[in-house]
Design a protein around this nucleic acid. Structure first.
Lengths: 102, 102
DNA sequence: TTCTCACATCACCGATCGCCGATACGAGCG
DNA sequence: CGCTCGTATCGGCGATCGGTGATGTGAGAA
């Protein structure tokens, strides 16, 4: 059986703004203030998106004074990558495995 | 710059049932009837999900008599895999790239 | 202590989604 | 031809989502 992935993780990445946040965090560890000015989103809105990413297990928070820094968890992204690679590899051999019409 | 991925493709995969369908199609090329009996979903519901997957560019349809077979497009999955691998690799080096508190 | 700032949470509301039954359509069979 | 079957589309209704302003909280600065 292929490794399974929580659909919530994928859903968390399915939002354009969250995908942008993830791309930003892939380059630097940033705090909410930075993300607000980078994305132009409101603080409340951004906080909600960060909550989704946090609950999906994609990011970790690290308090620094009164700032909270967010950093990505590379293992989760790597797991996703592996999972899709498995699916792609399996799909390549599935083209001729056509089940007969019922 | 990293390769960009349409969030719609990710969103299409963020649904549990659609993820299951993709896993099934990664093993065999199937038609709607097969998918209905495999998943237990209603035909209408399934047809809607297949429409989402089709519009996201994840599957191709291939008519066979009065059946329509669905098969995955491995390149799309492979592209996703690469994209997440890039993000994961980048994220691994981003931990120490912490932008200063403003 | 009091004030300020960074961030989170809450309640609301409009938009969108998911699933449904009904129905349309087209291909093959009688 | 008419009928059946496989599939797609439509309109709807309830649920969920996404963004908002208001407000709460906790840590540092004054």
């Amino acid at each position: 059986m292929l490794t399974s992935v929580d659909p919530d993780v994928i859903r968390a990445l399915g939002d354009p703004l969250r995908l942008r946040i993830v791309a930003l965090l892939a380059r630097e560890t940033l705090c909410t203030t930075h993300l607000v000015e980078e994305t132009g989103a409101r603080q409340t809105n951004l906080s909600n998106h960060m909550k989704v990413l946090r609950e999906a297990g994609l990011v970790e928070t690290e308090p620094c004074g009164r700032f909270t820094y967010y950093k990505l968890k590379p293992e989760v992204l790597a797991g996703l990558s592996d999972r899709f690679a498995e699916l792609a590899a399996s799909a390549r051999t599935a083209a001729e495995n056509k089940r007969a019409c019922p």
